[in-house]
C-alpha cells in the first residue's frame, strides 16, 4: 500500500479538532470515520440500485404468478408459492406435471447448458487468441501503436451493433457464405448459429483480454528474460517457465472478468437469433419469462444470480483469481 498515513489528517475536519495528539490508533479511527463519510453516497446508491431489486426479486420468487397459466390454460391465483417457482425451473415442473416441451419451463437445463457452453468456448478462445495478440503487441516493432489502437475498435463498438454486423456477415447471401462459397443458414440452424455467436463474441471481446494480458506481460522485467537467455533457456522454456507463471495473476483476473461477463451473455444471441435454435442463454430465458409472469421470472433471475455468484466464488476461492486483493493491495509493487 502506498497510502501514506501521516498526511491525510490535515484534510479531515475531525483532525482539526485534535491537533497535536494523534496516535496511530486515533488516526485510524479518524480515517475510518472520514472513509465512511466518503463511501456512504456510493454504497447507499448501490444499495438502492442493486440490493433493493435483488431482495425484491427474492421475495417475488416465492409468490405465485396470477393470471392464465400458459401451460394449462387455467386461471391461477397469486399467493405464496413456496419453492414452486424454483422447482418449476430446476425440476421442470409445471403445476405438478412435467412442463410440456416447447414451454419456457422445459428449457431451463438447455439454457443452462448452452450458457456454460458459450462461456467455456468463448473464454477459452479469447484467452488463447488474447495471449497471442498480447505477446505480439508486447514486441517492439514499427507500427506497434497502430496495432494497439486497432484492437480497441471492436471493443468500442456497441455489442448491439456488433450483433447486427455479424448477423449481416452471416446472412444467407452475406459475405461469409460468398467468401467461403458455402450455403449455410448461419443464424438459422443449430450449430452454425452457436458458432456465429461465438465468433462475434470472440471478435468483440478478445481485445479486452489481450490488453489485460499485455498489461500483465509488461510487469515482467526484461532482465528476467535476459538472465534466462544467458542460462540457455529456449524460447518455449522462457514462455512456460517465466511468462506463464509471472503473468498468471493478471491472466486469472482477466479470465474471471470474462467468465462472469459471458455467463450473463444476452445482447449477441438475443439480437442474432432471439434465442432460437438452441442459443437461448439464461439471461434470454429470464427476459422471455418476464412477459409471462414476473414471479416465475424472478425465481429464474435469482437462480442465474446464484449460479454466477457460485462460479465467482469458485474462481476466487480455489483458482486464486483474486481481483479484490489485486485492487486493494495494488499499486507501487514495482
Amino acid at each position: 500500500m502506498s497510502t501514506d498515513v501521516t498526511k491525510k489528517a490535515p484534510t479531515t475536519e475531525a483532525a482539526h479538532h485534535m491537533p497535536g495528539r494523534e496516535s496511530a490508533d486515533r488516526k485510524q479511527v479518524t480515517q475510518g470515520r472520514w472513509a465512511s463519510v466518503l463511501l456512504a453516497p456510493s454504497l447507499i446508491l448501490l444499495g438502492i440500485v442493486i440490493i433493493y431489486p435483488v431482495v425484491n426479486a427474492i421475495i417475488m420468487s416465492f409468490q405465485k404468478d396470477s393470471g392464465l397459466d400458459p401451460a394449462t390454460g387455467f386461471f391461477v391465483e397469486g399467493g405464496p408459492a413456496g419453492f414452486e417457482n424454483y422447482t418449476h425451473w430446476l425440476l421442470q415442473q409445471c403445476n405438478g406435471v412435467p412442463c410440456p416441451p416447447g414451454t419456457l419451463g422445459a428449457q431451463f437445463w438447455d439454457s443452462f447448458g448452452v450458457t456454460f457452453f458459450f462461456t467455456a468456448v468463448t473464454v477459452a478462445l479469447e484467452t488463447v487468441l488474447g495471449f497471442w495478440m498480447a505477446v505480439i503487441m508486447a514486441r517492439s516493432f514499427r507500427g506497434r501503436s497502430a496495432i494497439r489502437a486497432a484492437v480497441l475498435v471492436p471493443w468500442a463498438i456497441p455489442t448491439a451493433v456488433t450483433a447486427k454486423l455479424w448477423f449481416f456477415i452471416f446472412a444467407f447471401q452475406g459475405i461469409a457464405n460468398q467468401l467461403f462459397n458455402t450455403q449455410i443458414l448461419w443464424t438459422g440452424s443449430e450449430w452454425p448459429a452457436k458458432w456465429a455467436i461465438i465468433i462475434a463474441d470472440v471478435w468483440k471481446t478478445t481485445p479486452f483480454m489481450a490488453l489485460l494480458i499485455l498489461a500483465g506481460l509488461q510487469l515482467i522485467p526484461d532482465e528476467v528474460y535476459e538472465a534466462a537467455k544467458v542460462d540457455g533457456a529456449s524460447a518455449w522454456q522462457r514462455f512456460t517457465l517465466i511468462t506463464l507463471p509471472l503473468v498468471k495473476p493478471a491472466l486469472m483476473v482477466a479470465i474471471l472478468f470474462r467468465v462472469l461477463d459471458a455467463l450473463r451473455m444476452f445482447d449477441l444471441p438475443y439480437i442474432m437469433t432471439q434465442g432460437a435454435n438452441g442459443t437461448s442463454t439464461l439471461s434470454i430465458l429470464v427476459v422471455q419469462q418476464i412477459r409471462q409472469g414476473f414471479n416465475t421470472a424472478a425465481a429464474l433471475s435469482t437462480i442465474t444470480f446464484l449460479v454466477i455468484f457460485i462460479v465467482a466464488f469458485i474462481f476466487v476461492r480455489f483458482l486464486g483469481a483474486n481481483a479484490v486483493a489485486a485492487a486493494s493491495t495494488g499499486g507501487k509493487k514495482k
Binding site: L39, S42, L43, L46, V49, I50, P53, V54, N56, A57, M60, F257, L260, D261, L263, R264, F266, L282, S283, V286, V287, I290, F294, A297, A298, L300, S301, T302, T304, F305, I308, A312, A323, V324, A327, S328
Partner: peptide, 19 residues
Amino acid sequence: VLGFILGASMFPGVALVTP
C-alpha cells in the same frame, strides 16, 4: 467494500430487470 463494488460490476443485469 472493494469486494462489494467489484461484485456489483459483475452483477447480472437480468437480476435487476425482472423486479
